[in-house]
């Protein structure tokens, strides 16, 4: 068994009185894709931000490449690329300038000219980043996460804002990246994406870990949580998730009627 790239044990973090994540434990091995799923506010982003060394957990531990990412951030980032949930860039910077800047952060940067072409941004090289569309910014964000030829990629809402065709292309790209031994942690609300790519699932509910394991085990977990009348065989990950996710009330006409 090869050594885990990421090892989180009983990770906990509170924001004042709110316990954002409690006792979350998971591992990611080389070449594995982990999908973190859960509702809004379930602690997905907090979990990845602790893994990225951007937040200091107040309980438990996380090791990335055997190092604490909070204490050894610059060393860990030599092998880790991230795409944050929300990213802004300097207002007047142009696409090529931003790529050149990010390339300077790494000893052996990726060929960003090639990546620009592959992600369909080649014609936007001289365009200010703020003038890019949402999808183009998302693709640029993915490009920057790949700049350091990472061994671990953390993608927070990878395909939000992308059209279906680009999403599909992105999936196959990340499948190829994984084949080269890169591990990926992805946070996504698109469960078809998680189903297509992930080896393992980490399911969070109100900051608490409900499940961590393979997709097959997740199916068994859901089956154990629902009544036989609710259970359906061979349904998609999304339908499995909807069987157990906390129910929210929809919009009624009462408030506006």
């Amino acid at each position: 068994m090869s050594q885990a790239i990421v090892q989180a044990e009983n990770l906990s973090l509170s924001y004042k009185s709110i316990r954002a994540v409690q006792n979350v434990s998971f591992t990611v091995n080389p070449g594995e894709i982990l999908a973190i799923i859960g509702q809004n506010g379930s602690g997905k982003t907090t979990t990845v931000e602790c893994t990225e060394g951007l937040r200091k957990p107040d309980g438990g531990s996380v090791l990335v490449f055997g190092k604490d990412p909070w204490l050894h951030r610059s060393q860990v980032y030599k092998q880790m690329g991230v795409q944050l949930q929300e990213t802004e860039y300097p207002m007047r910077i142009k696409v090529a300038e931003l790529c050149r800047l990010f390339a300077s952060f790494y000893e052996r940067p990726a060929d960003w000219n090639l990546l620009l072409a592959q992600l369909g941004l080649d014609h936007k090289r001289k365009c200010p980043v703020r003038k890019l569309s949402g999808g183009e910014r998302q693709r640029l964000s993915v490009l920057l996460s790949l700049m350091g030829r990472p061994k671990l990629l953390i993608l927070d809402e990878l395909t939000t804002g992308l059209d279906p065709e680009v999403r599909q292309n992105m999936w196959s790209s990340f499948e190829n990246i994984r084949k080269n031994g890169v591990s990926i942690i992805m946070v996504s609300h698109y469960l078809d994406e998680a189903e297509a790519l992930a080896d393992k699932i980490l399911y969070l509910e109100k900051g608490k870990q409900q499940f961590f394991g393979t997709q097959q085990k997740f199916r068994e977990y859901v089956k154990s949580r629902v009544s036989p009348s609710e259970w359906k065989e061979n349904c998609s990950l999304e339908k499995l998730y909807l069987m157990i996710a906390p129910k929210t009330t929809g919009l009624t006409m009462e408030g506006i009627g």
Binding site: Q75, Y77, V82, L84
Partner: peptide, 18 residues
């Protein structure tokens, strides 16, 4: 202040440069 508010520094913190 603009970099701080737009969390641009946070993005740079997620690189070896910081």
């Amino acid at each position: 202040a603009g970099y701080k508010e737009k969390k641009i520094y946070k993005r740079f913190d997620a690189t070896p440069a910081g």
